[in-house]
Design a protein around this nucleic acid. Sequence first.
DNA 1: TATTGTTATACTCTATAACTATA
DNA 2: TATAGTTATAGAGTATAACAATA
Lengths: 156, 156
Amino acid sequence: MDVKTRTQQVRQGSLGWMMKRLSARLDEEMNARLAPHGLDLSSFAIMMTVLEHHPLSQSAIGERLEMAAYKVSRALDQLEGLGYLARHPDPASRRAHVIRPTAKGEGLAPALHGVVGEVNGKLAAPLSEEERRQMAEMLHRLVVAQETWRTPDSES
Amino acid sequence: MDVKTRTQQVRQGSLGWMMKRLSARLDEEMNARLAPHGLDLSSFAIMMTVLEHHPLSQSAIGERLEMAAYKVSRALDQLEGLGYLARHPDPASRRAHVIRPTAKGEGLAPALHGVVGEVNGKLAAPLSEEERRQMAEMLHRLVVAQETWRTPDSES
DNA sequence: TATTGTTATACTCTATAACTATA
DNA sequence: TATAGTTATAGAGTATAACAATA
């Protein structure tokens, strides 16, 4: 299918369709850049969170990212295996773990920030500085508003 | 997690993160409104395409929506079972099917357009008319630009 | 030999909830 | 009784490719 045909579809789907399209594409871009570091989108999200907010328990990570406990557990196995972070015993509770980045994990931070910047830059390339600011502000308003939505029941 | 904490994360993820968030929410909203009609997002996309562009072959639907043939086949079973469209023999080729909406399918069109309008309206509620126009125009530019991207190989 | 459409099969992903060990 | 974390297992969704019919 050519670009012109695709562009017609863009009109069809309006705001929602376009955002969905862009999101899917951004995921691809992120995955391609994260794979060389051994990360996928889940472990990337955790790594960013840990780098910024450590020390964290696993449950705290799960709450922050709204990620199920079993996914956190699995992603931490992966990240620990790669040597980017470590589970330490929590002095306050023998069942909890304290998650911290390793030195290698700290060293990964610039690369990860680079990936984010690169992908967002690629996305926003067609926009002027002022437009980027505007778009970010508007999207932010939409995200905040959406937090208070009540989705209708499917049975009606 | 409270709204304030979520709002911090919004900043973290920038444009891409916010779009992803909104897309996921819009899918929920769409699904909740489509379920009473017996549709999901795939069959909805097909139904909209068929209503607008019939007659279509199954492969034409697949190309238009970039949907795998087996998914088209499965969704058409569903839509035909609900009586919204029908597979007719193609006079030009005995292996192809001609897909057309039924009268019932045509009757569904206003409801489907209503769903799209409702969800997009809910999404765009925090924006002024001018801002909506602006956002749509900018997103459109991003979608068109993204079509020409070359995603880097994961092995590098 | 290629194409249309269907189906079987295998694979991945996700969710659930059962489980251990603590508190 | 509730919580932190792990794991087994079942289910849903996805992709692959084999298939029959036709071109």
